[in-house]
Structure formats: C-alpha cells, structure tokens
Design a binder for these strands. Structure first.
Lengths: 206, 206
DNA sequence: TTGTCTCTTGAACAAATGTTCAAGTAAACC
DNA sequence: GGTTTACTTGAACATTTGTTCAAGAGACAA
C-alpha cells in the first residue's frame, strides 16, 4: 500500500502546477496523497524540500522531451508538434499550458535558498534542452549557423514561455496555432548580425 | 500630512511589484505607507481592493506610455526605445524588469472575483495600447497590413512578456539588446498567410 | 504471549496574516 | 466652552499555515 515516490511527485507536481506553490498548503498535499502530516514529513523534510524535488522532476521531464525531439527526422515538424502539444493542452488540463517554472519565478521572493537554487537549476536544465534542439536545427541548416546555439536557444525558450502565457489566457486556439507558425518562420528567418553580444556570433558552442 | 491617493498607490505598486501580491502582507503595506491598520482600512476596504486599484494604476500608466509612443515620428526607434527602457531597468530597480501583470497571473488562484476581473481588465488594457502602436506601424508600412492589428498586437505583447522574464533573469544586458533587435526584425519580417485564424486576415480593426 | 521495530496517526503548537473596533485626538462649528 | 465630525491608534481576534511529537497499530521474532 506504499506509494512510489514518483507517483507522489507526479501528484504534487500537478498540485503546484494548478494552484501555485504558495497557494498549495501542506494540507492540500496531505489530502491529495491521502497521507497524514507525520507520514508526509517522514518522506519529505518539509514544503521547501517538496518544491525542490518537484522542480527536478518537472525540468527533467521537459528536458528529456526536448532531447527526444532533437533526434526526430523532420525537425521542423517535430518542433511544431512540441509547441502544439504543450500549448494546446485540452481544457481539463488547461492549467498545464502555464509554465510551472515561470509561476515559481513569480513566487521567488518567498522561496528559501535551497528552493531558489533548485529553481535556477531547473531553468538552466530546460535551456540546455533547447540548446540541443537548436544545435540539431543548425546542423540541418534550418537555422543560421552564424549565431551561437546558446543565443538562439535562449530566444526559443523565451518564445516558449511567452506563448504558454498567451495560450493559457487566450480563448482562441487557432490564434495560438498562428503564433506557432509565426515562431517557426522567425526561427528560420533573419537574425541580427551583431549587437555587442559579448561572444563573437561566428563561433558555435559544441 | 495626508498623503495623496496617487502617492499611496505608487508605493503599494512598488511593493507588489518587488515582492508579489501574496508575499506582501498588510503589515508591509502599513509600514511602507506609515499608516496604522485602522487608517489603511478606512482608505481601502481591504487587500483585494488594494490589488484592484494597483492593477488599474499600473495598466493605465503602461497603456498611456504606449499611446505616446504610437505618435512618435520615428516609430521603429521609439518602439526600440520603449523596449530598451522597460527591459533594461537599472540594477536598483531590477524588479521592474518583471511584468507585474504576469506575476499577478501566477497568483490568480488566490485572487477573489473582483481582483481576477481587474487583472483581466488590466491585461486587456495593455493589449489595447499595443494595438494602437501596431496600427500606427501598419499605417506607416513598417508592418504588413495583411494581418489584423489585433493579432500582431497580441504577438507583440507576447514578445514583451517573454523578454521581460528573460531580461529579469539574464545577467547579460547585451544579449537582451540583441533580442530586441531580433524582435524588430521579426516585427517587420514575414507573417504567415493564414492558419485558420477565425477572422479573415484581410480586414483591419481600426 | 511478549517484546521490538517500523510506520502511521491526528491532536496540538507557534507564527503569520487579514481584519475589526472601542478608545483617543484634534480641528471645525454653534 | 461645548459638541460634533473626521480621522487615527494599536491592541485584539479569527483563521490559516508549516511543523512537531507522544501515542497507537500492526508485523514479525523469541
């Protein structure tokens, strides 16, 4: 009758995702996991530790997803699919259109040190996933190689974050699909030649 | 010795901006305004009402700013200036790089009905400001007229949101400036011809 | 049965938070 | 001077929240 840690984390992740970290009380967690306070605290040292594990859980999954995509045969289509899947989640899971990490960022001032570090690590992890995807896109000449993958990756992650917010708010899914089309155009389109970006735009990280 | 309501709202806005709505306690507000609980509650019926007024205050200012920009002679340069100003706020006001509205969105589940309505209204207000700017840009042929201003405006607001997050997190201001350049390229660049966007791409809302 | 070990229970605590209200202050008006 | 009016004060309340811990339950060995 003992639940696996992964199942537990799945459920807690959903909670934090749907309601936010602060808005989710330990009593909410206890109820969702059908555990009493003592048992819960035997498993997780406290709310902050729970947050840390959820961050790792979430970022790990997202990064893995991105690495899979980077190996697809039709990269552009796979990228579009990725965005479509993430952004057009069905109404019953609409809260998943939001980005858990961004919501967490908004609550940063209330996080303790461990939690803040975990949040940063999670964001960097996801960025790393995007960098792999961009490198693949550059390798297949979908994206100019004159701009470092790292910079394009940051751009794409930025787009992802913003679209999640818009998709969450918008009632118009077709409009979101249009935004994705625009994004894919811009990705393959023109890039500024330079603007004092510290690293030379010519060199490509791995 | 009585403070103007605008001064009060300015201070409360800063508080909410820097710490977040939930993370700011009424005692924080009392301290910042040098008011005792009773006086504060005589002026504002409660924390939720405070939130509502801050939303109106903030969105009103941002929209006004956008309307001013829409009347500049060099629209592209004015737009770039707008983004640069908002995104590269000096270190002592770094928290203002974040978007107050987005942070509020992340706490939506804890807002009561009035506050949620005010938040939506604020977001729509800002979107309206962007729409005016886009209309001006289209009028001067910087942006294609084949796409409705409303759609482009939503895109630009999305970009704005995204860049704010990145600018807040990033240690590299030159990178942010590069992102702004890319944004201005994309704005003037290619737009998808259609993708089931419900309203016909030919007609332009004023 | 008895004893031991592991895990669970739920009442309880302490701190924080939004809010109220009777009492106090001082200026304005008759 | 006396009375009313408008505003301020700060102690206090009720609720929520993260967390703890002594007591209990059940499995298994002696």
């Amino acid at each position: 009758m003992v639940q696996q840690s992964n199942e537990l984390l799945d459920k807690v992740t959903e909670l934090f995702w749907a309601k936010g970290f602060q808005a989710t009380s330990m009593r909410d967690v206890q109820h969702a996991l059908n555990m009493r306070p003592g048992s819960l605290y035997a498993r997780f040292p406290g709310k902050s530790a729970l947050f840390v594990q959820v961050m790792e859980h979430y970022a790990g999954q997202l990064k893995a997803h991105l690495l899979t995509i980077a190996q697809a045969s039709d990269l552009i289509e796979a990228t579009r699919m990725f965005f479509t899947q993430e952004l057009l989640r069905a109404p019953d899971k609409r809260y998943q259109r939001q980005c858990l990490l961004i919501n967490a960022m908004a609550e940063r001032s209330k996080l303790d040190d461990n939690a803040a570090v975990a949040l940063d690590a999670a964001l960097n992890d996801v960025e790393d996933g995007f960098r792999h995807l961009i490198s693949a896109l550059q390798h297949h000449h979908f994206v100019t190689q004159t701009v470092p993958a790292k910079i394009v990756a940051k751009w794409l992650q930025t787009q992802f974050i913003a679209l999640r917010h818009t998709a969450y708010r918008s009632a118009d899914d077709a409009g979101v699909a249009y935004h994705i089309d625009k994004l894919l155009l811009d990705l393959q389109g023109q890039w500024p030649t330079s603007h004092g970006s510290s690293s030379s735009p010519a060199e490509l990280p791995d």
